[in-house]
Amino acid sequence: MSERNRPIRMLVAKPGLDGHDRGAKVMARAFRDAGMEVIYTGLFQTPEMIATSALQEDVDVIGLSILSGAHMTLFPAIMDALKTVGRDDALVIAGGTIPEEDIPAIKEMGIGEVFGPGTKLQVCVQYVLDHAPTRDDDEG
């Protein structure tokens, strides 16, 4: 069995066209404070940008913050782009203004968990600590 003997590497990205990155920044800070190494790429991330960052930074987890309402088109495109670069092994989580009724379909796409508005940061952090994948060549 493989075991992770290093900090979790995480990408925090803000896909979509709305210009609010406060949520993403708060998220990034919370994960950093939990001891993770957080790559923060800011606003207006396209699926291809997210995939390239995930590939080059070799992250374990990808956190998407989305407020634009375009999640049902953006999320599948992001998951496709990740697959194209071979990084669909990363855990993807999403937060932001996502209606309850969309969540089952989003999880169906391969997104691990969806955190709606008002979710305590500690809950998101704990989820990542519990579910961040170990990689097949991680060693103890």
């Binding site: 800070r29 790559i39 923060y40």
Partner: peptide, 10 residues
């Protein structure tokens, strides 16, 4: 905390 925010990619 040992954590870090890495923002140069932006």
């Amino acid at each position: 905390t040992g954590g870090a925010t890495l923002g140069d990619r932006i």
